[in-house]
């Protein structure tokens, strides 16, 4: 059964149609690639799915178990709590905070104490803080940043910032993970490591992953199914081999008829 279904999704920014009539069906456990030239509307599609923008029209339906949940028009934090997590193309870490705090903040939804317990330092506070601390370190260990826990996020090198964003997204305990150009700015070695990491995370947490990427080696190695956007419209979908040989895709990337 499909876990995410997007129906006739459209978003206009004034006169610009950034996303037009996009239909998408993602199965549980899929690793889907989303590609397309610059300005094709990929990030906008992520922003629509994660609630940063409300769609002009169309529906987004999430079915983690048997019950379908309508996501379009909901607040981002609420959508995250249903099981969606994301990273940002232009890295949006909490820069002035420590690596550890970045992850702990994202664990907010399953913290079982409130303002009173924190002010009065009730036992629940200590119990939960211990649990959160341990789990945050585990996640940092997985992405290889455990030793950097006390470092400020802004002081990490670029590649590690991207990894921290992934750890932070995982901390929300997602079912579906959205990665917006996770390899941007990485060297080939870092990209290869990242490709391996994404595969591992998918296994370990049983994730469904949707990723935007310009690095074709990563996309073609990792993704089983690929969607191609151009000028906001879906122009192709299929396996890596099908996409590589798709006439429309080649035209879109070259800009002219071949």
């Amino acid at each position: 059964m499909s876990i995410l279904e997007i129906r006739q999704l459209t978003k206009n920014f004034g006169g610009i149609a950034a996303v037009v009539d996009v239909d998408m069906v993602v199965e549980k456990g899929d690793l889907v690639g989303l590609i397309g030239p610059n300005g094709a509307g990929k990030t906008t599609l992520f922003n629509l799915i994660t609630g940063v923008y409300a769609p002009t029209s169309g529906e987004i339906v999430f079915t983690p178990y048997n019950k379908a949940i309508l996501l379009s028009g909901k607040k981002p934090w609420w959508i995250t709590r249903q099981g969606f997590a994301r990273t940002f193309q232009n890295i949006r870490l909490f820069k002035e905070l420590s690596v550890l705090d970045n992850v702990r903040i994202a664990m907010h939804k399953d913290i079982k104490y409130g303002v009173f317990s924190s002010i009065l330092r009730l036992p629940a506070y200590y119990k939960e803080e211990d649990r959160v601390f341990t789990k945050a370190l585990e996640l940092l260990d997985i992405v290889g940043l455990k030793e950097k826990q006390a470092e400020l996020a802004k002081n990490l090198p670029y590649g590690q910032q991207r990894r921290l964003e992934i750890a932070r997204a995982l901390a929300t305990d997602p079912t579906v993970l959205f990665l917006d150009e996770p390899a941007a700015g990485m060297n080939p070695q870092e990209t290869a490591d990242l490709t391996r990491l994404i595969g591992e995370l998918r296994q370990r947490f049983g994730l469904t992953i949707i990723l935007i990427e310009h690095d074709m080696s990563l996309v073609m190695n990792l993704c089983e199914r690929i969607y191609v956007l151009d000028y906001g419209r879906l122009i192709a979908k299929g396996s890596p081999d099908e996409i590589k040989n798709n006439q429309k895709v080649i035209e879109a990337y070259l800009g002219e008829e071949v």
Partner: peptide, 14 residues
């Protein structure tokens, strides 16, 4: 504090 740092990211983290 996360809201002060980056409200959009904060909201995206639930």
């Amino acid at each position: 504090i996360s809201i002060k740092e980056d409200e959009i990211a904060s909201e995206a983290m639930g």
